[in-house]
Nucleic acid binder design. Structure first.
Length: 422
RNA sequence: GUGGUUGUAGCAUAAUUGGUUAAUGCCCUUGACUGUGAAUCAAGAAGAUGCGCGUUCAAAUCGCGUCAAUCACUCCA
């Protein structure tokens, strides 16, 4: 029996795992720089939490959750998204009691039992943030800006930002009545009618040309926004403009989770086929209260690491040079091996990646391995060096040899290696 | 979940259209080149028809099933 990974899970192993790591760290950097703090959360929660939080009418809850009974007879679900679990933790530990907004980030895997294809996995990876307890439109814009700068830091260009506002409860209710009225007058097939019954907004997202055509005439939620909601949305746009973040207003945007209100956004990549959403999020006015917390608002996003990686590969911008080895030490003989191990130990605290050539390979084969692995510098230490007290430091990219005395070797290497652009 | 396409060594391709030992390149090891990489040449090692059943004298090749990947829809990160 030859085992294989369960259907639809993404696995990352070398060399591509470096690309994955680079994506995750790059997306996380602007988040940390904006003062968000880590929330390390369980990947499973009480099933009821997701049913209430994500929304009973969503596909995510209805047909995509990994739900099972644990040994104590509890119904457990593998998290299909991050916001609800994060808020549960915030409420449970009173994290919204300090100064607001309270700002958190998380990263990890999520689970949805969908039919997989490239960019859509049953276990996928996201980084997300939540900012809780402020309705300042500047916060909306900053949250969007953080995601935007993450994608830009990856070097992505072929993507765009779509935003809309879902307004407040009253706006949505009024719109829904008219939209349902409009849809009921259309001549639709049964499965489409069924979808519309669950959530009439879904029809805005239909890929079929004839439906798109019909929906052109449908009432648009933006036209139903209350004056306050509209003013708020305009302020968000104003801040995005000051930050020079390009965006498109997409009044037909549909999000699959029930809790979104107000500002809602999506980052769409143009080279990924059908699975083109690389990130998205929005504000959630009633969610905290819905799952047992105070009635305060919040806003957040989730960015797909798997898809961001696919996008970066499609654009040819993946950069894993940060993971290159700075120095390979090739010891020849037992004394030299001890020396090499001490040298590596002394250098690594200076944030240098230092490897030792193990296994008593020939210098030639060690050099070959260094070349193939993208090592920046190499030194060979043997009896000759140990007795003469002189070592040659070889830069692989140029082939240049630089001499150093054994006694000043650590200092020389720290200086040489740190000077190289990483 | 619905429909389509594709599965050959670690990777990438080939195999007379059903024909006998499934090939080549890359990768790996060694040498030419006593302790300094990429090129070239030589030698060597290991390794595959996703899985199952069927048709046939004979299956990588045809059929059915299954598993997986992939594409579109549904949906979403």
């Amino acid at each position: 029996m030859r085992y294989q990974a369960p259907k639809g899970v993404s696995e990352y192993f070398p060399p591509r795992s470096q690309s994955f790591e680079w994506i995750r760290e790059t997306l996380l950097t602007p988040i940390r720089q904006a003062g968000y703090q880590l929330l390390e959360l369980p990947i499973f929660e009480d099933t009821e939490l997701f049913a209430r939080g994500v929304g009973a009418s969503t596909d995510v809850v209805n047909k995509e959750m990994y739900t099972f009974e644990d040994r104590g007879g509890r119904s457990i679900t593998l998290r299909p998204e991050g916001t609800v679990g994060a808020l549960r933790s915030v409420i449970e530990h009173g994290l919204d009691r300090g100064s607001l907004p309270a700002k958190f980030f998380y990263s990890g895997q999520f689970f949805r039992a969908e039919r997989p294809q490239a960019g859509r996995y049953r276990q996928f990876y996201s980084v997300g943030i939540e900012a809780i307890g402020s309705d300042d439109p500047a916060l909306d814009a900053e949250v969007i800006a953080i995601a935007y700068s993450g994608f830009r830091a990856l070097g992505l260009k072929a993507f765009h930002l779509e935003i809309t506002s879902l307004g407040d409860k009253a706006s949505r209710a009024a719109h829904r009545i008219d939209l349902v009225k409009f849809i009921s007058a259309l001549d639709l097939d049964k499965s489409t009618i069924d979808r519309a019954e669950i959530n009439p907004l879904r029809l805005f997202d239909d890929k079929r040309a004839e439906i798109k055509e019909l929906m052109l005439q449908a009432p648009i939620l933006l036209d139903y926004l209350s004056p306050e909601s509209l003013a708020n949305f305009e302020q968000v746009q104003g801040f995005l403009n000051t930050l020079e973040i390009p965006f498109r207003i997409n009044p037909r945007m549909v999000r699959g989770l029930d809790y979104y209100t107000g500002t809602t956004f999506e980052f769409v990549h143009e080279m990924l086929g059908a699975q083109s959403g690389i990130g998205g999020g929005g504000r959630y006015d009633g969610l905290m209260e819905e799952i047992g917390g105070r009635d305060i608002t919040g806003i957040g996003f989730g960015l797909g690491i798997d898809r961001a990686l696919l996008a970066a590969e499609a654009e040819g911008v993946v950069d894993t040079s940060v993971f290159l080895t700075d120095l390979l030490v090739i010891p020849m003989g037992g004394d030299a091996k001890s020396f090499a191990m001490r040298l590596a130990r002394d250098l690594r605290p200076y944030n240098l990646t230092v490897e030792i050539s193990f296994g008593d390979r020939s210098v030639k084969s060690a050099m070959k391995a260094a070349d193939k692995g993208g090592v920046k510098y190499v030194i060979v230490i043997g009896d000759a060096e140990l007795s003469s007290g002189l070592v040659e430091i070889k830069q692989m990219s140029t082939g240049t040899l630089t001499s150093s005395t054994l006694t000043s070797l650590v200092e020389t290497l720290i200086e040489t290696l740190s000077a190289t652009i990483r």
